[in-house]
Computed example of a mutant assay.
Amino acid sequence: MKENVIISLADSNYFELLDELVESIKIFKESEKTAICILDAGLTEDQKRILSKKVDEIKSAEWDIEVPDFKIKGKEWLKSQVSRAFLPKYFPNYKKYLWIDADAWVNSWEAIELYFKGCENKKLSISTTADRAYGRVLRAEWFFGSFARIKSQNYKHAKSSGFSEKIARKVALKPHLNIGAFALEAEAPHWNIWQKNLKTALKSGKIWGSEQIAMNITIYNDELDVEILPAYCNWTLIEALKFDKNKNTLVEPYLPNHQIGIVHFAGKNNDQIRNNKNFISKVKTVDGDEIEMKLRFNKN
Rank of each mutant, 00 (worst) to 15 (best):
I58N: 01
F182K: 10
N154V: 15
K75Q: 08
L98C: 04
D46S: 05
H264Y: 14
R169Q: 15
Q272P: 03
M215H: 00
K48W: 03
N269Y: 12
N221P: 02
E66F: 11
D289I: 12
S60P: 01
D289H: 15
S161E: 11
V226H: 03
Y94C: 03
N298H: 11
N234Y: 02
S210R: 10
S80R: 06
K79I: 05
K156M: 15
G288L: 12
F163R: 04
S60C: 03
N248D: 08
G135D: 08
K71N: 10
K196P: 04
L9W: 04
G145A: 06
S12H: 09
E20W: 02
N192P: 08
P189N: 13
C233T: 12
L295Q: 14
Y134I: 05
I179L: 15
A172F: 12
K26M: 00
L17Q: 06
I6S: 03
N93K: 09
N121E: 15
N278C: 05
L43Y: 01
E20A: 07
A140G: 14
G162A: 13
F91I: 03
I65W: 09
K159C: 15
N4A: 11
G145Y: 08
A133G: 01
K156N: 15
L224G: 11
H190W: 14
E30P: 00
N197Y: 11
K170M: 13
K117L: 10
L9Y: 06
L202Y: 06
N257V: 00
P68H: 02
K59F: 04
F86N: 06
K199F: 10
D19Q: 00
S125W: 05
K282G: 13
W109N: 07
K206F: 02
N257F: 10
Q195P: 09
K203V: 00
I38M: 00
E187D: 15
I291W: 15
F147H: 12
A214H: 01
S8D: 09
R139T: 14
H190F: 14
E110A: 07
A172G: 13
V171E: 08
G135P: 04
K89E: 11
N276E: 10
I27R: 00
W105T: 04
K53H: 01
D64R: 13
N197F: 11
Y134W: 07
D101S: 09
I193D: 04
I167W: 07
L21D: 01
L98Q: 04
F265T: 03
D289T: 15
E223C: 06
E211S: 08
I228N: 01
F147R: 11
I25F: 03
L295T: 15
W99Q: 03
G145L: 08
Y97P: 05
E30H: 00
S12K: 08
I260L: 10
W99C: 03
L173V: 13
V263E: 05
K277C: 00
M1F: 07
D101E: 13
I238D: 05
F91M: 02
D40L: 01
S152W: 12
E120F: 10
